[in-house]
Design a protein around this nucleic acid. Structure first.
Lengths: 337, 337
DNA sequence: TGACGTGGTGGAACTGGTTCCATAGTAGCA
DNA sequence: TGCTACTATGGAACCAGTTCCACCACGTCA
């Protein structure tokens, strides 16, 4: 059917190796021969088979990304960063969406067996001990984004500091009664998510540093979405002694808190201050005060790092920590009276 | 290094073909032999090379999706539908993000040459005549999502009817001065987007049907994002005789219109009614009246259709039209006075 | 003049599966 | 008992590239 490299060789009156050399831009071809080959390629409308190429060379020019909940704006933004970096380097991106624990485990196991990609990017999911071992044994280059693990390369932020940053902002404004809304502990454990957990640590540490007692009733955990966050915030706001400020572990959850405030007629920020985390696209639209993290860049850097590892460049610093920044908008203010 | 099928054959004391048959669940293997082979596989920790498999069989078990502006919530939702359907069928998804016209053209050209995937899903981008020809010639199965083209399979909605539906709602409420904010005509032409154009047609037809004269000043076009939509809405609202209602060609653009109303102190819906299109996730959050289209399902159906085509099942009906629905929320009301 | 190096070239061997043909074994049947 | 038919099996050929070794021609240098 389609022309093969042998057809081209015959047509051009040269050997197989020469055509291969032309295809791979080897300098060891004389200009005259090169032209003859190129002419034959054009004439036969030849296009090399990528699969045969991968098969013979062992390189697939493909990278996999494993991402939980693909629809979360923060994840999408990271994927966009990954895609931009990969296509710039001629690599393709295969995407795996993880929405259940079973699939999470299946994906992480599969990597170790697949030879379908040259490397893997794992977003927000932290491999467990046994999985780390399997990955190491399989020898597949892996870069973690938004997490880290012993002996693994990664690109992340300091979530504990981020939590501290958010809570310090609230304390600086004069708040003492500060609530927290974050991910369900069971879900986080099942998927092995760490960001909400770490931001929560930051929350606790900063309160402790300010001499504010921790109140268990002020700390709520639920599924990472607007709906659960809204319910949790309802609970917080209906306490006898409700918080005057709430730190949500993500902007998505902050949106749920905003809804709850609206439901209960609390004015934001007059009656209630709200701060989120991530600085996703709609945060600006909603005027949400939040902690900005470079999402697009995390994907870009992660992909770049992975490609360097694939290319055989040894990386001294295993983990890249990106800067975060407080973005004050309209949902935080000093507590009223 | 890793065990090959020949190692397994030797270990199990059987022939190559038998191992291959076991791997492919052929019934032509006796239970005893099958067990021997499976034991050898376990013992050698053998895992078949996917690439070699693709190479030999010509099937890649991979599907490509070409999507413009990956970050748009509507596109993400479609991709999620695609991914869910594909993984359920054991296929992988390679994603190509298109953000420039050059990349659009490159992607569409590449498909015809690549043998890297078994089929292609194209989201929102309509191939041109010459591209259609090339695709046809290449013989790659293609399914279009959110568009259609002569002789191509597709999954879409009726955007003209959608535009009519939105505008009829406004007319029914008593509006006569109705503005439109949609995609820039140049950009739409360059990418060959059609949805905003068709929704605009629906707008014009419904106004004509209601005997309302078209006013060029009421129809504005800009880049498909919040920022441009905000500026365009500003222009509309500052006309001497401003519209009492605005139909935005997408929810994203409706968000820009909402911002403009806020900027200028117009109350929504008292002073200004706003209707969007798509019913993306935040539309509910914002209480935006809009035209709902089944985004997730469009991806799912498109992938399903593509897999059937790849499987060799002839499809009689080339184009699948999904239902749309008016969702009335809080941003539309009768005009005041 | 002969030894040596080097740029340019051809082609066999190899990658790890699938496919298909040949063949052995065995049951069914007249 | 011999013929047929069908199951179970082995293994060569094949997919389309890359890689590497052998080799030639030609210039350089002692």
């Amino acid at each position: 059917m389609a022309a093969t490299i042998r057809d081209v060789a015959r047509q051009a009156g040269v050997g197989l190796g020469t055509v291969s050399r032309v295809l791979n831009n080897s300098p060891l071809v004389s200009p005259v021969t090169r032209k003859r080959v190129l002419d034959a390629i054009t004439e036969l409308r030849y296009s090399p088979s990528q699969i045969a190429r991968s098969f013979a060379s062992g390189k697939t020019l493909t990278v996999s990304a494993i991402a939980p909940f693909f629809t979360r704006p923060s994840v999408v933004e990271r994927l966009r960063g990954i895609e931009s970096q990969l296509t710039a380097s001629g690599y393709s991106l295969v995407v795996f969406n993880v929405e259940t624990v079973a699939r999470r485990d299946a994906c992480l196991q599969d990597i170790s067996r697949h030879d379908r990609c040259d490397g893997v990017l794992i977003i927000s999911l932290t491999p467990r001990e046994d999985e780390l071992l399997a990955l190491h044994e399989a020898g597949v280059p892996v870069v973690l984004i938004d997490t880290s693990a012993a002996g693994m390369h990664g690109v992340r932020i300091d979530d504990v500091s981020g939590g501290e940053l958010a809570v310090r902002h609230l304390i600086d404004l004069g708040h003492r009664r500060i609530g927290f809304v974050g991910d369900s502990i069971e879900q986080a454990r099942a998927f092995n998510f760490t960001s909400s957990r770490d931001r929560h640590s930051g929350y606790r540490q900063m309160l402790a540093a300010a001499g504010i007692a921790l109140r268990p009733a002020y700390q709520r955990h639920g599924v990472h979405d607007r709906y659960d966050a809204r319910i949790l915030a309802h609970e917080l706001l209906q306490l006898a002694d409700p918080p005057t400020a709430i730190f949500a572990a993500s902007d998505t959850q902050a949106m749920g808190v905003l809804e709850a405030a609206r439901d209960l007629g609390r004015r934001v920020p007059a009656d209630l201050s709200i701060i989120g985390f991530d600085d996703i696209d709609v945060a600006e639209y909603l005027g949400l005060t939040t902690v900005h993290q470079p999402l697009f860049m995390s994907g870009q850097r992660g992909a770049e790092l992975l490609l360097r590892i694939i290319g055989g460049e040894a990386q001294e610093s295993p983990s890249d920590v990106l800067p975060i920044e407080l973005v004050v908008r309209g949902t935080t203010a000093p507590p009223s009276a």
